[in-house]
Amino acid sequence: MAQTCGFVAIVGRPNVGKSTLMNRILGQKISITSRRPQTTRHQVMGIKTLQESQAIYVDTPGIHIMGKDRNRAINRVMNHSATQALRDIDCVVFLIDRTRWTDEDQIVLDKLVHVKVPVILAINKVDRVQDKATLLPWLEQLAAKREFAAMVPLSAKHGTNVAELEEEVAKRLPESIHYFPEEQITDRSERFLAAELVREKITRQLGDELPYQMTVEIETFRDEGRIIHIDALVLVERQGQKKILIGENGERIKQIGRDARLEMERALGAKVMLNLWVKIKRGWSDDSRALKSLGYDLD
Rank of each mutant, 00 (worst) to 15 (best):
5 C>P: 07
9 A>Q: 12
9 A>R: 04
13 R>C: 12
16 V>N: 01
18 K>C: 02
21 L>S: 08
23 N>I: 12
26 L>V: 15
27 G>W: 03
30 I>N: 10
34 S>K: 00
36 R>D: 00
37 P>G: 09
39 T>K: 03
42 H>N: 05
43 Q>V: 06
48 K>V: 01
51 Q>M: 15
53 S>E: 15
53 S>A: 11
55 A>V: 05
57 Y>I: 03
61 P>I: 01
65 I>E: 09
67 G>S: 15
68 K>W: 04
69 D>Q: 10
70 R>E: 04
75 N>D: 09
75 N>F: 01
86 L>C: 03
91 C>M: 12
93 V>G: 08
94 F>G: 09
95 L>A: 05
96 I>E: 10
98 R>T: 13
98 R>Q: 14
99 T>C: 07
100 R>Q: 11
100 R>A: 05
100 R>C: 08
102 T>N: 08
103 D>E: 15
106 Q>H: 13
108 V>P: 05
111 K>F: 12
113 V>G: 14
118 P>M: 13
120 I>C: 09
120 I>A: 06
122 A>K: 07
122 A>F: 08
128 R>Y: 03
129 V>T: 10
129 V>E: 14
134 T>W: 08
135 L>Q: 06
138 W>S: 03
141 Q>D: 13
142 L>S: 00
147 E>S: 05
147 E>G: 14
147 E>V: 09
148 F>I: 13
152 V>M: 15
153 P>A: 04
166 E>Q: 14
170 A>P: 04
175 E>A: 06
177 I>D: 13
184 Q>S: 12
188 R>G: 13
196 E>C: 00
196 E>W: 04
203 T>M: 03
204 R>W: 02
204 R>E: 03
206 L>T: 10
207 G>V: 11
208 D>S: 10
209 E>V: 08
213 Q>S: 13
217 E>A: 08
218 I>V: 07
219 E>A: 07
224 E>I: 11
225 G>A: 11
227 I>H: 02
228 I>E: 01
229 H>R: 09
235 L>T: 02
237 E>M: 01
241 Q>P: 14
247 G>A: 14
248 E>D: 10
253 I>S: 01
254 K>A: 04
255 Q>W: 11
258 R>L: 14
258 R>T: 12
258 R>S: 14
259 D>F: 04
261 R>P: 06
263 E>Y: 04
265 E>T: 06
266 R>L: 11
270 A>Y: 02
273 M>A: 07
277 W>R: 08
279 K>W: 01
279 K>R: 12
280 I>W: 06
281 K>S: 14
281 K>M: 01
281 K>E: 04
284 W>L: 04
285 S>C: 13
285 S>T: 10
286 D>V: 05
289 R>K: 06
293 S>L: 13
293 S>K: 11
294 L>W: 10
294 L>G: 04
295 G>Y: 05
